[in-house]
Amino acid sequence: MKVLIVEDNQELARNIRDYLGREGYICESCETLEQAKEKITLFQYDCILLDIGLPDGNGISLLNYIRAEYKDTNVLIISARNALDDKIIGLEKGADDYITKPFHLAELHARIRAIYRRKNLGGARIVEFNEISLNTDTFEVRVGDTLLDTTPKEFDLLLYFIVNKNRVLSRQSIAAHLWGDYTDNLANFDFVYQHVKNLRRKISYAGGMDYISTVYGLGYKFNSHLGANG
């Protein structure tokens, strides 16, 4: 997948590039609206990560341009302004999603995958990994042929793991993913622990492999190569 990062902060752009690069994404980045326009005209991108506050103007204007000229490109808005107006305007003007700084890179990745699934895989919204398959329409999880009885949060969690497989997912990132931005009082990692524990138990019970492991001090990891990672 080809991704264009329109972000004036180079460090942040590099973070995104590094993270997505490891997933095998081809990432390019630019810092101004002008450069972005040029790149969009010359190349084709599957997804554009668009910062709203750019040195030479508001990212929303670029969004208008993209929507007028390149309807199929996915746009994910990145903004530090938590202002509701921006969020609503962005989505009204045809952005596919909206993420607020500071975000976890795993969360950004999950959002990009979600947009991609929604728009590009037309209908077939099944995410598969080995014997596990998730249907993002019906929220059903199957291990082999066995239907898993998962709660909505467990479904979310498993999807988050599979999208970010072989990555260390911090408990903070998981909590933010499951409970959103305003989890003021809910950064209680016991809940994360409970959810992960239940999920592992349910998968094992249905005959699946125990892909999820604890990373000491940090969080959890979904290992795709069980043999290699132990």
């Binding site: 942040l12 973070n15 995104i16 590094d18 530090a80 700084k101 500071p102 795993a106 260390v168 990373v215």
Partner: peptide
């Protein structure tokens, strides 16, 4: 308010991203 929010959230986002990468 908006600028302060913008200016502070960006470095926070950078640190968070770096930590995410460091964990790997």
């Amino acid at each position: 308010t908006e600028n302060a929010s913008h200016e502070l959230q960006t470095p926070t986002a950078i640190i968070r991203g770096k930590l995410d990468l460091l964990m790997e």
